[in-house]
Amino acid sequence: MGFSMSELKKKTENSSSDTTEDEESGEQKTGVHCCDKKDKGDSGVGMGVLFFIASFAICFLSGWLLFPSLLYSKKEQPFNFNHALHVAETGGCESCHAFRDDGTFAGVPKNSACIECHESQLGETEDEAIFMTEYVEKGIEVPWHIYSKQPDCVFFSHAAHVTGAKMDCVTCHGHIGESTTMKPYQENRITGYSRDIWGENIWGVKKNSWDRMKMDDCAECHQEETGSKGACFQCHK
């Protein structure tokens, strides 16, 4: 408390006006000046503005550019999977991403489904070789990172949407079926969410219906299609 307002005022009144110098030396000089040139004229506002602009720029840009890249960790898929090729071979999403008899959705197929075709290696790709040697032969399920993985609190009925409302897979999942490579999986370091849930855009802006899979996106569509967002339990468990 020893350092009083009067002192502060004096200092600000007397601080240096070396606005032409670069930041670092300016700071140093300021330090010196304020000690020995206490009764010089007031020109500190300019310095303040400079600092303001500099720190604004740094924070603003790092918030937009650095922050997103720090926020997400990138994980490579165990091996590349060519959706386009498989869709062409099997005829559609449903042949691998199927419903079980009780109406639940099986999601990513298990090895047992894959080896219906891949009894032995079919093609010559390295990826298939990895699949065969590392997973099928060792009896391990492939630890895919699932782009559309919703958190545990979400209940999503594929049956209601695909069978009931006759929705197309693309509406939510985009054109993943036409992809030939798997993009890296980005996981939010804080939430553990897949980046695809929030959307690629850091503001979460979406252009296509499949760009984002947040609750608001579900609610928006429900509101349009059913006239109600639905009660909590409709989508939460």
Binding site: K11, T12, S15, E27, C34, F51, I53, S55, F60
Partner: peptide, 19 residues
């Protein structure tokens, strides 16, 4: 390194606004 108080104010406000 000593930061001038007004600069400090500028720094803080700038950072706050930028963030």
């Amino acid at each position: 390194m000593k930061i001038d108080r007004r600069s400090f104010l500028g720094l803080g406000l700038g950072a706050a606004a930028g963030v």
